[in-house]
Simulated assay, not measured.
Amino acid sequence: MARTPNSEGTEQRRGRGRGGEGGDRDGRGRGRGPEAARPEENEFVDKLVHINRVAKVVKGGRRFAFAALVVVGDAKGRVGYGSGKAREVPEAIRKATEQAKRNMIKVNLREGRTLHHDVNGHFGAGRVILRAAPAGTGIIAGGPMRAVFETMGVADVVAKCLGTSNPHNMIKATFDALVNLNSPRSVAAKRGKKVGDIIGRRDGAAAATAA
């Protein structure tokens, strides 16, 4: 008879820890955490640009690994790229995506659809030419550069890559050009003028060139 109170106390303690109300509340609270973080992760758009299989020669054979190149953007002017290497393809893509999110840059877009002005970029042997385009032009660019513009949110642009077809060099040259982009507001702030003066001169020069 002396064991009965101890056994009841043990059952009550187990019930509170495992099946009690406190355990259910903790479980529900923990389950809501990842769901709340999903919208932040879903705001980014990622595209796999290139994946390459690499081999390391070791004693007894070769070990294969995969290198992935990924571009990530929010379709609102932010974009980044990253590369990752792993023994499996999903792991390599995950590493590249995390690196791309850490190395994102902000690009000011004209009317939210195209670039403010023409710009050139280069990296290594690769050179790229990016030109602003009127509405309805679309994205006229190669595969790696197209991925950058789609994830960044550009709707109208004309781009050309010269000197190389290496996707890594093309991506880096494109980012070199995007970093050198200036908006009329930033130029006006540096020169101490109004935004209307900068835009008026640009429109006048464009009309003179068309004439």
Rank of each mutant, 00 (worst) to 15 (best):
Ala68Met: 08
Arg94Gln: 11
Ala211Gly: 07
Val89Asn: 10
Gly27Tyr: 05
Asp118Arg: 05
Asp26Tyr: 13
Phe44Asn: 13
Gly27Trp: 07
Gly200Trp: 01
Ser83Met: 09
Ala177Phe: 02
Lys47Gln: 04
Ser186Tyr: 04
Leu178Gln: 07
Asp197Arg: 06
Gly204Val: 05
Phe66His: 07
Asp26His: 09
Phe44Cys: 11
Leu115Val: 11
Gly204His: 03
Leu115His: 01
Arg94Ala: 15
Leu181Ile: 07
Ala132Val: 03
Asp46Thr: 03
Arg201Ile: 11
Phe64Ile: 13
Ala55Ser: 14
Gly33Gln: 08
Gly143Ile: 00
Asp24Tyr: 12
Ser186Arg: 14
Gly17Arg: 13
Ala211Tyr: 03
Gly82His: 14
Lys76His: 04
Glu111Pro: 00
Ile171Arg: 11
Ala125Pro: 10
Val107Trp: 02
Gln99Asp: 13
Ala147Gln: 01
Ile140Ala: 12
Arg102Tyr: 02
Glu98Asp: 15
Glu88Phe: 08
Ile171Gly: 05
Met145Ser: 00
Lys101Phe: 04
Gly121Gln: 05
Ala135His: 11
Arg113Phe: 03
Gly19Leu: 08
Gly153Asn: 10
Arg131His: 07
Ile198Gln: 10
Pro184Met: 13
Gly27Ser: 11
Gly112Pro: 00
Val128His: 10
Val49Gly: 14
Gly196Arg: 11
Val119Thr: 08
Ala207Thr: 04
Gly163Cys: 03
Asn103Gly: 03
Ala208Val: 02
Leu48Gln: 15
Thr4Ser: 14
Lys85Met: 15
Gly153Thr: 07
Asn108Gln: 14
Gly15Ile: 07
Gly29Ile: 07
Arg146Glu: 05
Val45Thr: 12
Thr137Asn: 06
Lys76Arg: 11
Pro134Leu: 07
Asp74His: 01
Leu115Asp: 06
Arg94Cys: 14
Tyr81Asp: 11
Glu150Leu: 03
Gly33Asp: 10
Arg14Ser: 08
Glu35Pro: 12
Asn180His: 10
Thr174Asn: 06
Thr164Phe: 02
Pro90Leu: 13
Ala173His: 00
Gly9His: 06
Ile51Met: 14
Val58Gly: 13
Arg110Cys: 04
Cys161Lys: 09
Gly153Lys: 02
Lys193Ile: 11
Asp24Lys: 15
Pro184Trp: 09
Ala68Glu: 04
Asn180Phe: 04
Lys85Thr: 14
Arg30Glu: 10
Ala159Gly: 06
Arg110Asn: 12
Ala173Ser: 05
Pro5Gly: 06
Leu115Arg: 03
Asp197Ile: 08
Ile129Phe: 13
Glu8Lys: 12
Phe64Arg: 05
Gly196Glu: 15
Ala210Pro: 02
Glu21Gln: 11
Pro144Ile: 04
Gly77Ile: 01
Ala173Phe: 00
Val79Ile: 06
Lys193Phe: 00
Ile199Cys: 08
Ile140Asp: 01
Arg62Tyr: 07
Arg3Gln: 10
Lys76Gly: 05
Pro39Lys: 00
Arg62Ile: 12
Arg32Glu: 10
Ala155Gln: 08
Lys193Pro: 12
Thr174Pro: 00
Glu43Asp: 08
Ala132Leu: 09
Pro184Asn: 13
Arg202Leu: 11
Lys190Pro: 12
Thr174His: 03
